[in-house]
Every structure is written in C-alpha cells, then in structure tokens.
Nucleic acid binder design. Structure first.
Lengths: 215, 215, 215, 215
DNA sequence: GATGAATGAGCCTTCATTCAT
DNA sequence: AATGAATGAAGGCTCATTCAT
C-alpha cells in the first residue's frame, strides 16, 4: 500500500511526535479499561486528533496496544536485569525493590497495562513471557540460589522470592484505587513512597535474612 | 441489588437455580475479559440459556457484575476477619496466609474479578472499599499494631503488612498466566500450592519475626 | 453462539419470510452494483427492515451474496441439464435456447448477478465452476458431439456452441441497458421476447444445420 | 473531459506520461472490481505514485473511469464501423468477427470494463449509447438489411445479428474466468484464439448463409 | 418462564478527497 | 510535480436492551 508507515521510509518529525502523542494518550486508557474496553475514539480525543488521523499512524487498535506493551516490557524488567550475582545481596535487593516501587509510583499506568494484559490471559505477550521473561527469571533465580548456597541469605525459594517482590511492589500501582480508598489521604501524601519503601524493605529484607530461617 | 425481580413473590427454586447458573457462568468471563470486554451473549451461552431469558433474571449486565462482586467480596475478606488479637501472631498469620493462598488457587477467578474491578478504578465497589473494607483494615491493623507493641512480632507497619500479604497471595491467581508461562509444568504440579505456601510463609513469617528488626 | 439460524432449530415462518425478503431485496442490488458496490443499508432499506435486523438473519454480507448465488446457479443451469441425447437436435436446441431466453427476460437480475460474479473473477463460485459446471458441460458437449457424429447437425465444436448459446441468450439480460439504449421502445415492446427468440433461433439453428457446413 | 488540468498550458511530457500510466493501471482494476469496488489506493499503488499525486492528474475517481471508458469505446467500435455495405458479406462478417475476437483475447480488460459499466446500468455511457452507438447500429443494421434484401445472406434480423456477434465474441473476455474454470488448460492454449475463431465463424457464417433459411 | 425478533447506539475501519508544504 | 498529513462520511458488524408472544 502507500501507507506512510513503511519501515523503509524514515519517520518524519511529525510522525514521531504524533505516534508518541498517541501512545501517551493510549496508555492510561488501556491501563484502566483493558484492550476491549478501550475505544479508538477515546484515544483520539485524548491525543487531540481525529479518529481517522490516528489510524493513519497506527492502522489498527491492536498496533497501538502492542507498541505500548513492547515499550513497557523492556523498561519494566530493567531493574531485575541489574541484579548482580557478585553484589551484596542486601544492597542488591534493596536497590531492586526500591527501583520497582519507584516505577510503580511514577508509572502506575504502565504497571496496570501489564496487569490487565496478564489478567486477560496474556494473549499478546505470552510468547514473550514464555521465552525472554522465563530466561530472565531463570538467570536471576540462579543468582539468588547462589546467595543461598553461600549462606548470604536465608534459604528461600528464589522464584517465589521474585514473585513476592513483583507482587508486593506492583500492588501499589495495580491496586492503587483500593489503597487510596482504604488509606485516604495517607496514600496521597508526598511521603507515601518513602513510607512504603521502608515498610516493604523492612519485611522483605528481614524475611530473607539469615538469622533464623523458618520452615 | 440481588433481589428477585418480583419482590412480592419469593424466589422460586427455578429462579434461584438459574440466577446461580448465570453467576457461575459469568464469573470466569468477567474475570478474564473485564466488565466491558464481557458480552451477555458469552454468559448466556455458557449458562445454557437464551440472552433474553438471562435478562429476565438480571435486567442489566451491570446487575450480574454487581451481584458477583458483592458475593465475592464477603467471601474474600473472611480470612482477614478471623485474625484474632489474642491469638498467637505466627499461628494467626500462618492461617491467614494459608487461607488466602488456598483461595487464590481454588478460586482464582474470583480474585481476578476483583483485580479487574480495582484496576478499572473500582467504579462499582469503591463505596464498599471506602467504608467496610477501610474499617476492617483499620481494625486488623490495630491487631497487628497490638502485636508489635507487645513485642510479639517485629516492628512492621501493619497496613503495609496487610497489603504485602494481599499482594503476595493474590498474585498467584491474578498473574497465573505469567507464572505458568515462566514456570511451565512446575506451576501445574499438584504440589504447587504446598510449595508456594511454604515459600511464602518462610519469607513473610521470617520477615515479621522479632530477632533482628531492620531499618 | 445463540444465533437463531442454527440448522438444528427449524426456521420459523417469520424467519423464512424475512430471509426470503432479504434475498429478494438483495438480488437486484447485487446484480447492479456487484458485491463490493452493494451496501447492507441498501438491502435493508429495500427489504423494509433495519440493518441490524437484517444481520440477524444473515450474519454477513457475504452470506446473503452466497445464498443468492447458490440459489441462482441451480436454477440457471436447469435448462442445459434437460438437453437429451436421444431427442431431436433441433427440438432440443430450440427448447434450450427458448428456455434460456425466457429466463433472461424474466429474471434478468439473476443473470446479471452471475455475470458480475464471473466478471470479478468468480471468487465465490469458482469451485462450483471447476467441478459441477465443468462436469455438466462435458456431459452435454458429449451429447452434442454425439449428434455431430450421427450427422444430425453440422460439424460444430460442442463446447463453443454451448458458449455461444450462453453468450447470446444471457446478453439480453446482462446488456439490457445497452440494448434499451440502442433500440429504444422496441426493446420494451411486449413482443420483444418473441422477436428475439425467433431471431436467435433462426441464426443458431441454421448455424448448426447440416446443409453445408463451412470451414 | 480528458483535458489537462490547466487548459492554459499545454500538457507536458510528464503529464501525458503520468496520465497514461494512471489509465493503464486503472483499467484492469476497474475491469475486475467495477467502479465502486475500485479504490484510488489500488490504482495509485499500481501506477507507482502517491494517492494525492494521482489526484493531481485526475481530480476525481470518476474522471479516471470516464477517461478510460471514452478511450475504450472508440476503439471498441472500430471494427463495426468497418462493415462495408458493398463488401462481400461473408468476408465482411469474417473480418468483423475475427477482429472482435482478437480484441477480446488481447484486451479482455477493456471488454470487462465496458461490461461492468453496462451491467451497472450504464450510468456513465448511457448518453453515448443513446446517440452515437444507436446511430452506428442503425447504420450497420441497414447494411445487413441491404445484404438480406439482395439475397446475399439469409433473412436474419440485422440488429439481433449484431447483438449475437457482440455477445458471442465478448463472452470470451467477459466470462473468461468461467471459460477457464470449465475448460482448464485448453483455454490457456496458444491456439485457443484460433480454435475459437474457427468455431464461432463456422456457426455464425453458416447461420446467416442462404442455403436454407429456417423459421 | 422462555424465546424469536427487532433496534439504537456504538465501534473499528476504509475511502475519496482536501490541505499544506 | 509531488507527498505527508488530515478528515468527513460512510460501511460492516457487534452489543445491550426491548418487545411480543
């Protein structure tokens, strides 16, 4: 076709800007309403352009969604990738958890986008999960197992530790509506990230500390 | 809300049975596709009745959704309600976490229904969250604070501990697709619940144990 | 689905009537504008129902089109099927040509529907053409060849004779607009079918007569 | 109608070349999909230019279509124009039929373009049909009538003879999809034009031969 | 209680055409 | 002469809901 988005042709400035605007507009909507609950109209309106014009940049709703997920995923896993086998376990975990919590507070919509996709059965990103993510988890589980073997942390199941950290940190983004309903103003305080980070670190770091491992 | 449509007459057996069938059919669909992503057709088909007949029992899609949430919520919070101020903290937490994990494994769809609703901003259950749930959390936070004061557990922030337990246990239901993609057969093993329970308990109980509370 | 058109469920009277009305409304439109040039709106309006209601009977535009073609094809080839090997060639051809011309005059839209489909490359009925129609043509070509061998008609190529008859008779339906433009009132006369039949028979029957076959 | 867009300036070479390219690209598409079924995108792509650029040469889709028809019509009727009152009827008809068949085989798309237009009710060329074509047919019918009067051919209705020749010869272009489906490789043979010409001439010339006119 | 029939509103997408450069 | 960008107007189809029986 004579579509403008041909890869061969370099994207113009307007194209880049508009694609960016569309993605930015789409993120919070997909994050809240899910794929099927989101309408192109909503996105177009939020991006300040007409629906056909939006479809000039992304030919299908699906393309927007996939582009968003792709971009999110990479960024989302960056902190885990940084977990260093040779670092100090406590420092490493502290950094990891801290980074994840910061992302949850600063980009809660990205987290929710991802949560929605997985809740729906991960129709789009399943291939990624089964290959890249799986490999990453295995590699980092190995790192944690290494720490356990060396006696540097308590004997915890590495994979479940990763899941626990994911769950705990992303919870503040994915269930923000609930947290705000329960905590009220406290959740809106400027210090809520700090408070949360301290609380989570206290439990998790203590949870993996060697002192007295429990059954 | 979930009253029979003709308040004058008591619900017949067929009415009760059919309403039940509809709710049972609707749960997994709402849980997977979210409110807007679910069609009445899907539910009716799964419930084995015609669309108009389904609408005879629930006049609007919203009613089904609300009835489901209402029923789920009560059940969902039962374990937390059982947390006893005067019990042994470790035993209490062990029971709570165990119960929550069991629910996540046995009724993952209820968890996902709830997750979807909250991800969407909790449009329907917000009032409940702001009143009942809030009160419950405050009460149980008080229980935990009591334990902390008595030195029976480490000095953790009670509310965040509750969130951490919610997040961690529900994660196995809400992100099941991801967990299965990452773990493969291991997640489908018959022992996966046991394995998970042990791993989670190990970390969380250790995390709140007094030995050496950390910053 | 809970579609009403399930084959298992017998069609009700209304269904039969409405499907019939839709097909009747669709025929002249498809015949004139072709598949892509026809809109469901046009058909629905002509059939006196709303667009969604029409789609309640035929779930896709394509289904209407295919149903029409299927019905037309059978009827359309009936005259050829009657060509009898043991009949008198002149009588047989006279009947065949007469029947085809009558159909062209009485149901020109069916002819045009078919012409449109074939002009478009026969995307839908190609399988039929390659199997059933091919077999029929081969069988009837054999009949004509038989006549030629017996010296009952001139030595003509059977297949091309069939094509010539098709072309000539269907021309009065397919090119009616042109014929009317060229002939004016003459083409609208009540006797035009008779006149045409006589003229075509004169040429074709003479054309296959044995007297003096030409190169 | 097919004037350059800026009448003040004569068409440049590029203009002429591009208009030509567009028409060449448009012919097979209009011929196959009809007017409404054809998109400017398809034409532009095939012509190797952008849609807006195409519209620089032809301001509307309709203009392309009309230009094509106009050009085709003239060419299409050339053979008939050559039918000479004073020539030998058999020779004249042989030439006419031969020329028409050659055109059908060599430019089937032009034939199909025309067929589509007439099938659609001749919305664009009706004026032409009612004036020029009508006059031409009347003139040539007179030629044939002259031959009949002189006893040089059988007593056939001139107009219907013309229609029969049109129908029969154009059939091989317009219904090519069907002919190929029915005949298979035979229709793709290099000799198929020769074979067809002989078969058609045999029937038609015999059909108008004087030997024994029939009812 | 149950279902066939009907529909307004909405959604994704296509398309001819225009505008600005 | 050419093209990237933009859009109004459909068009096919879905869906929640209502009506009538």
């Amino acid at each position: 076709m004579d579509q403008p988005l041909r890869p061969e042709r370099p994207a113009t400035r307007i194209q880049t800007a508009n694609r960016e605007a569309i993605l930015a507009a789409a993120l919070p909507i997909f994050a809240t309403y899910g794929y099927r609950g989101t309408t192109i109209d909503q996105i177009a309106k939020r991006a300040g352009m007409s629906k056909p014009n939006l479809l000039y940049y992304f030919r299908r709703k699906e393309e927007i969604y996939e582009a968003l997920l792709q971009r999110t995923l990479t960024e989302w896993l960056a902190p885990l990738r940084m977990l260093e086998r040779d670092g100090d376990p406590e420092t490493e975990l502290r950094q990891y958890i801290g980074a994840k919590l910061r992302m949850s507070f600063e980009q809660p919509e990205a987290s929710r986008l991802f949560a929605n996709e997985v809740l729906n059965g991960a129709p789009v990103i399943r291939p990624f999960l089964e290959t890249d993510l799986r490999a990453l988890v295995e590699a980092k589980a190995e790192v944690i197992a290494h720490w356990v073997e060396r006696g540097r942390i308590a004997s915890v199941d590495p994979v479940h530790l990763i899941f626990l950290i994911w769950a705990t940190t992303q919870h503040y983004a994915d269930f923000a509506a609930q947290i705000e309903a329960v905590l009220g103003d406290r959740a809106k305080s400027r210090d809520f990230l700090t408070e949360t980070t301290e609380a989570v670190l206290a439990i998790v770091l203590n949870g993996v500390s060697r002192a007295e491992a429990r059954s």
